[in-house]
């Protein structure tokens, strides 16, 4: 039985399309006077955040509450890598509280897998971002946003759409999840970064890779800029922030080379002036704020499909 959402790679195309179509229905809820559905009444969703991420936590919290679930927020920051026992002990605590789903954000790649497969808890586990591994609900909300703007046909298909994902691919869980999911959904993904910010073995991913932003973006239907932390500079991944912005930042000049329909995305939080300039972030083609709105609908869809029935309708066991 499928019980968890750990990796975007666990989703079949049918799974992903079910989540996106469910999210499309649930997004309408935002326009209604009562933004609440009874589907998860009596269910308990725990937001277990070992890393600060107010926006993701709030998004999951809103999603769970709109489905009438009881929500417990559990911030366990700072105890993650000291001994590791904390993850297990925390899990046992949650189990004792009768959590039906645990939404987990953790600094260690694979922590949600451990939670799901260690036998510590029986609840469904939703990965809300683990280390430099994955962030599947972010990829789902990105695909949902793309589908609304670029989709064709009744299902808003992304078949053949060209998506450029630009920036720190090496450390980005958003890039990993998006590469997997967008490929599943039929889109053509090109990752753009300096060679130092690609992981070894990226050639085996179902994507194109490029070091040349200017060559890629005029053909793209969506350009997703990834956050680049200034600390990467001290790691020697690039010489200076200025050189990075010049070669891989999205500014007004580059935006002028985009096609008319091309949208600009960013998973947030943005480092304005680093990977994206303010005029681009605030341009009409920027859907960055809409991504946040869509995040709630997509997370509602995931929670509903995992917890709404007698057994989950989507997700992977492992």
């Amino acid at each position: 039985m499928k019980r968890h959402l750990l990796s975007a790679g666990d989703l079949t195309r049918d799974d992903a399309e079910l989540i996106l179509s469910t999210a499309a229905e649930l997004r309408e809820l935002a326009d209604r006077p009562i933004k609440k559905l009874p589907a998860l009444r009596g269910r308990t969703v725990v937001n277990l955040f070992f890393e600060d991420s107010t926006r993701t936590r709030i998004s999951f919290e809103a999603a769970a509450k709109r489905l009438s679930a009881d929500v417990i927020n559990f911030a366990a920051k700072g105890s993650s890598l000291s001994k590791g026992e904390s993850l297990k002990d925390t899990a046992l605590t949650l189990e004792a509280m009768g959590a039906d789903a645990v939404v987990v954000r953790h600094g260690a790649s694979g922590a949600p897998h451990r939670l799901a497969n260690s036998g510590w808890v029986r609840s469904s586990v939703v990965n809300a971002g683990d280390g430099t591994h994955e962030h599947p609900t972010q990829a789902l909300l990105d695909a949902f946003t793309m589908s609304r703007h670029l989709g064709t046909g009744p299902k808003g298909s992304l078949d053949g759409r060209r998506i450029a994902i630009v920036g720190d691919v090496l450390h980005s869980r958003v890039a990993r999840s998006n590469a997997l999911l967008l490929h599943t959904l039929g889109a053509e993904v090109t990752l753009v970064a300096p060679p130092t910010l690609f992981p070894v073995g990226v050639e085996s991913w179902p994507v194109e890779i490029s070091y040349d932003l200017d060559a890629v973006i005029p053909k793209a239907d969506a350009v997703m800029m990834l956050r680049v932390q200034r600390e990467r500079m001290s790691g020697g991944f690039f010489p200076t922030a200025r050189e990075y912005s010049r070669r891989y930042g999205l500014d007004g000049r580059r935006m002028a080379t985009l096609q008319d329909h091309t949208i600009v995305m960013h998973p947030g939080p943005m480092v304005r002036g680093m990977e994206i300039t303010a005029d681009v972030a605030d341009a009409d083609r920027s859907v960055i704020v809409e991504q946040v709105t869509n995040g709630v609908a997509v997370r509602m869809a995931v929670l509903y499909l995992l917890l709404g029935g007698s057994e989950p309708a989507v997700g992977g066991e492992e």
Binding site: L26, L67, L306, G309, S310
Partner: peptide, 15 residues
Amino acid sequence: TMYRDDLRMKPARAL
């Protein structure tokens, strides 16, 4: 769908 009293008796259904 979400208001059905048998929601929990079957796998989660598409909306």
